[in-house]
């Protein structure tokens, strides 16, 4: 349906605020560790599309999720990953773009057997 606006040409003048060109070569990426809701929401980052997925594994996740007692127990071989709802198997050498991670993509991961402190996903 058309927008309701005083200006009949309003729709053609709309400039979305968060298009890729505004992020200085980065793209917005959201990461969420499922069943560990001590972290209140998914985390937001500006990452270059060419960044290897391994940088998320080696640097980003330990820096921002490392404080959780479950973190050091993660068996990375068993982790289930999705990008925008599609299952992926990460290759640390390949880029985010190679994994289908685009601007404003959401990466979710599940750590089997680790579902929060004392098995409570809200912790």
């Amino acid at each position: 349906m058309g927008v309701i606006a005083l200006d009949p040409d309003y729709a053609s003048k709309v400039a979305p605020a968060d298009t890729l060109d505004k992020f200085h070569g980065n793209q917005l990426v959201y990461i969420h560790w499922e069943e560990h809701l001590m972290f209140c929401a998914a985390l937001a980052f500006p990452f270059p599309p060419g960044m290897p997925f391994g940088a998320i594994l080696a640097e980003i996740l330990p820096t921002f999720y490392g404080i959780h007692p479950d973190f050091e127990k993660i068996d990375w071989g068993k982790v289930r990953w999705t990008v925008d709802g599609k299952d992926i198997t990460p290759d640390p050498e390949k880029s985010l773009a190679d994994h289908g991670v685009g601007h404003k993509s959401l990466i979710r991961f599940w750590t089997p057997g680790l579902t929060g402190v004392n098995g409570l996903a809200t912790v």
Partner: peptide, 22 residues
């Protein structure tokens, strides 16, 4: 969280002019 499931964050998404919105 998802309606009826307090252990899972509720994610909803739309697309507009080729970009995702959450």
């Amino acid at each position: 969280t998802e309606p009826g499931d307090p252990t899972t964050i509720c994610f909803r998404e739309s697309e507009y002019k080729g970009d995702k919105y959450h």
